[in-house]
């Protein structure tokens, strides 16, 4: 007896139910908590689609970090909620929106059912060339060799987004510390967790990074874990956010992209193209890029969650 259909069917039903619920429920706080749950369920769907790398990313970023971000926002916006909720549209607007959204879904469903057989795929090409990268994980090979440009630009996206977030700081707080100040409750629950979990998280993160070359995992998942651990320590009040004017913070942000660019340009004389790796050196170079990126991603993600500077620096 095969239980896969049962698992898949229930999973799809649950995902859709929670998704509809996060849209329908009145209370925003409940909706964002629901969204975090939804992210975790979606990660299970990714496992069922044999995309463990995506599952890890979805669980860490989709469920975890996005959840934290939205929950914090929901708490801060709670007082305004009833006011804005009064702007709810008329029933016929809702009906029209439902019909149109349904039409889009229907069209997509038809497209899904008519996708060509056999499905086009680049898997054979990846398999053919993966040996030259020395990597065992095809997803990592795509991210850091075949489509390294996307990955480089994505690191740039994170930096741009952070610059954009920082640009929102009120002038008087420019250069100061992001987010509110968190008081340490020495015997509190959060401090309890924040003392125990981060060291374990660091070991797991480095594990995820290290096996990423050959098994599911890599710098994004590892960086996200590190960011989560740092955030935990900050929110428990065990440590404070650095001021955004500090040079080491800025250097930490761009190190990943800078190393990526330098190795990329070194590829021009040594491997014949920008972002190419010399024969036999691909794997160590990729690991160097990933290690640098992991740290930059961790710092950037954590600072993105914390938001623009809201406090003046101490000095």
């Amino acid at each position: 007896m095969n239980m896969a259909p049962l698992v898949d069917g229930s999973l799809v039903v649950l995902i859709l139910a929670v998704a509809i619920w996060t849209i329908a429920v009145r209370d925003s706080f409940a909706a964002v908590v629901g969204y975090a749950i939804y992210g975790l369920m979606l990660a299970l769907a990714w496992v069922r689609l044999a995309a463990i790398d995506a599952a890890l990313t979805e669980a860490a970023i989709g469920g975890g970090l996005t959840g934290v971000l939205l929950i914090r926002a929901a708490v801060r916006l709670r007082p305004t909620e009833s006011v804005v909720a009064g702007d709810s549209p008329a029933w016929f607007v809702k009906a029209l929106a439902a019909v149109l959204a349904g039409a889009v879904s229907l069209a997509l469903a038809v497209v899904v059912l008519t996708l060509p057989e056999p499905a086009p795929t680049l898997a054979p090409q990846v398999a053919e060339h993966i040996a030259s990268t020395g990597l065992g994980n095809a997803v990592t090979a795509v991210l850091l060799a075949f489509r390294a440009t996307d990955t480089l630009l994505e690191a740039v996206v994170l930096v741009f987004a952070l610059i954009a977030v920082w640009s929102l700081a009120p002038d008087r707080f420019w250069g100061g510390r992001p987010g509110q100040h968190y008081h340490l409750e020495a015997n509190g629950m959060l401090a309890y967790l924040a003392r125990l979990l981060p060291p374990l998280g660091i070991v797991v993160a480095i594990y995820v990074f290290w096996v990423g070359a050959d098994l599911p995992g890599g710098k994004f998942q590892a960086g996200t874990l590190l960011a989560a651990m740092w955030l935990l320590a900050i929110m428990a009040g065990l440590t404070d956010v650095p001021e955004v004017r500090l040079v080491w913070v800025r250097i930490a942000l761009v190190t990943g992209s800078a190393v990526f660019l330098i190795i990329g340009f070194a590829g021009v004389p040594f491997a014949g193209a920008f972002l190419a790796y010399p024969e036999g050196y691909a794997k160590p170079l990729i690991l160097i890029i990933e290690a640098a990126s992991m740290l930059s991603i961790a710092v950037t993600l954590a600072l993105l969650v914390l938001g623009p500077p809201e406090r003046r620096g101490q000095s």
């Binding site: 229930s10 139910a17 929670v18 619920w21 749950i37």
Partner: peptide, 9 residues
């Protein structure tokens, strides 16, 4: 899992 989700809803 189903029970948890039904509870959530």
């Amino acid at each position: 899992f189903l029970a948890g989700t039904v509870g959530l809803l």
